[in-house]
Design a protein around this nucleic acid. Structure first.
Lengths: 232, 232
DNA sequence: GAACACAAAATTGTATACAATACAAGTTTC
DNA sequence: GAAACTTGTATTGTATACAATTTTGTGTTC
């Protein structure tokens, strides 16, 4: 949010910028769930002391993006199937209503911004960068929450989308691809038309689609205990 | 949550325990909004170094209970009127639905626990300890969210209730006293009857009552800019 | 007496040092 | 050869030291 996340060599790298860089990497599936996040490693990578790295990790811990266990350190969170259901149920409770509010407040600029997000997302898909496409897809939802002028709820949705990214990394079914492609388009149209009821309904069905595109059947051990062991 | 918050002299005092102690004090209106929370002071009070105090403060910052500004330090948050509206609107969106779910899952023990909360709350009022009564009143809502078996949403509600405590400290109208006294009772009854619809409706009207019991009219400067200056 | 400038004190931000804990490998013992 | 113990290494938790910034107090000037 402040400025760049990497690049310029003469920048101090605050805890916020590190948290954001890690958050982005997780969103884009550059770092897999369960990956260990050693303090020394990160401190060296970002050219700061462990103190500031710890602050960044705690920040991500509070939004459940990273797991911190005492004397064991931090690792990218590994949401369980139960958590996955909870997150999407929470989204289904919050986002449709928020989309309805957004229809009231959406300005011409907001609509343009959302449309730009969609084209960027498509471009990322064309560039064979599904991680970035996923990130932009999440940003689309975050943006709608922001438009609705409810910063508090928008904050909640932001964390839910972050966690959704982890859930998708773990439980997404290959079969169901980008079914959402036109869902976002239709949503923008409803917002542009200031049709709150339609926006609410579209958002609800869109989220139900996403939820059902996950493979949340409780199979035998599977990745569950296997990767959990690897996460240590 | 781990163990005691104060008392035993031979205890290490972790950042969690400090965060909880401060949170409790804020809930009970022992510390007013805007109060400066100096690191050295807290470090001395709890017998730890500033390192762990900072972690505790950051923790509270993430749930918007304390305000942290760079190079200026931490102070108890001072929610604006806009934020106050947002918090209660978010509660009105989340809690009624959650109460409905709670009616499905509430066990005999849960009901007993909630009734105990109510009697404790009344006792605190009799003991002329309105701060503790307020805290217990909030705990009542948190408990319902927990009963609903939606840890994610329960977490959101918990932070909303924490912030509500600050909002009440700032904007509560003296005139409207403990109108909620029988509201909680009726809610428990609905839960005991497993009447989800009734629970949802009772919770909604209860929250609307609370919201309207606040004085959120945007008067001239008043506490707004005055106390805001004091909060520095 | 008010306003500005500068110096001193206090407070926060960051880095480093040390202590405590966990993990892994190797050794001993049965 | 396997289990248990021990030791060594790596990593995290906490405290302290130092740097940077803000605040406060004082003195000078108009």
């Amino acid at each position: 949010m402040t400025r760049s996340t990497v690049s310029t060599p003469t920048k101090p790298a605050t805890s916020d910028s590190i948290a954001q860089a890690l958050s982005l990497a997780i969103h884009e599936h550059k770092i897999a769930p369960g990956t260990k996040l050693g303090e020394d490693d990160l401190a060296e990578i970002y050219g700061v002391s462990r103190t500031v790295v710890r602050a960044a990790l705690q920040s991500l811990h509070h939004i459940k993006l990273v797991d911190i266990r005492r004397n064991k350190g931090a690792s990218v969170a590994f949401p369980s199937i139960k958590e996955a259901h909870e997150v999407f149920e929470a989204r289904e409770l919050l986002e449709p209503r928020t989309a309805r509010s957004a229809a009231l407040y959406a300005t011409r600029e907001d609509i343009a911004l959302l449309e730009r997000h969609i084209t960027d997302e498509h471009k990322a898909l064309d560039d064979a960068d599904p991680g970035r496409a996923l990130y932009l897809s999440g940003l689309f939802h975050t943006e709608i929450a922001r438009i609705a002028q409810q910063a508090t709820i928008a904050g909640f949705i932001e964390t839910l989308i972050a966690r959704s990214s982890l859930i998708i990394a773990l439980y997404w079914r290959r079969e169901s691809a980008l079914c959402e492609k036109h869902a976002h388009h239709a949503l923008v149209q409803a917002l542009a038309d200031k049709d709150g009821q339609q926006a609410e309904e579209l958002m609800r069905s869109h989220l139900v689609d996403l939820h059902s595109a996950l493979d949340l059947t409780e199979r035998k051990g599977r990745t569950q205990s296997l990767k959990d062991a690897l996460s240590q």
